[in-house]
Amino acid sequence: MTASIIPTLENLYDVTQEHQDNRGYCTLLWRRGQLLVKPRGQVKQPYLPSLDSKRSLVECLQHSPVTLVSIDPKLGEALLRFWADACKEADKPIFLSIPTGNKLPNQPWRELQRLIDWIAAFVLLLLVSPVMLGLIVLMQIDSTGSLFCHEWRVGERGKLFQVIKFCSHNITPLGRWMGKYNLDNLPQLFNVLRGDMSLTGSRGWTLEDAVQLNKLPEIKASWEVESESHLLHLDSQTL
């Protein structure tokens, strides 16, 4: 059974000025299991208060037939992170809608490169595992808090993934030392093993870098051309 992402009609159009930049103000387009999230355009869509809560959005995505979310970088870094976090909790893949000419290249020899990356990352993990264990012990002594933190990156074909890093607090001598020698990035070897990033190629864009792409000429994907006819309407019951 599917759930609707559209809220009840009560006070649907009673939107105050303070909500003008809220998450509910975006255009949702739907086609063949793919949800496209874009800024407000010429096609008007009412305010969707359910999008102001990550919990509500997660529940909607979990109970919907959405198989993939594509989000426009013009929405800004904050909204990209909001949707990415929600999609992660809902176990839905999320991609950035990047101009075709600006996507990270997908070379024909990519499968061979991935195999080489996997073997190299595995060997390196075996070699540096004593160092990583030592750093974990020192970090627990040096400061309190989480040992690992995650940062959203944009990889091949615009797919969003999270890199793993040591939460090195740079205000401490240990943190500054780890940052100086990039030791806080050692856990990213696990990202290489998962195929998120490469040791020899690109390691992905940050969300801040990705947002800058909206200044470049945009080449729309073919499935976006008929987007207006697939606008998520108020009477939709499938999302």
Rank of each mutant, 00 (worst) to 15 (best):
T2K: 10
S4P: 08
T8M: 05
L9C: 10
T27L: 15
Q34P: 03
L35Y: 06
K38A: 10
Q45P: 03
P46G: 04
P46Y: 05
P49V: 12
L61M: 05
V66C: 05
K74F: 09
L75G: 02
G76F: 05
E77H: 10
A78D: 15
F82H: 06
W83C: 09
C87K: 00
P93F: 09
I94T: 05
P99L: 10
G101A: 14
K103G: 03
N106R: 10
W109K: 07
L112I: 15
D117P: 06
L125Q: 03
V128T: 04
S129I: 11
P130C: 02
T144S: 12
C149E: 13
E151N: 05
W152M: 08
V154Y: 15
F161K: 00
Q162C: 03
Q162N: 02
V163W: 06
S168F: 00
N170F: 12
P173N: 01
G175C: 01
G175N: 01
G179A: 08
D184F: 13
D184T: 07
D184V: 05
P187W: 00
P187K: 00
D196L: 03
D209R: 11
D209K: 11
P217G: 04
A221W: 08
A221G: 10
S222A: 15
W223G: 05
L231D: 00
L234H: 03
S236P: 06
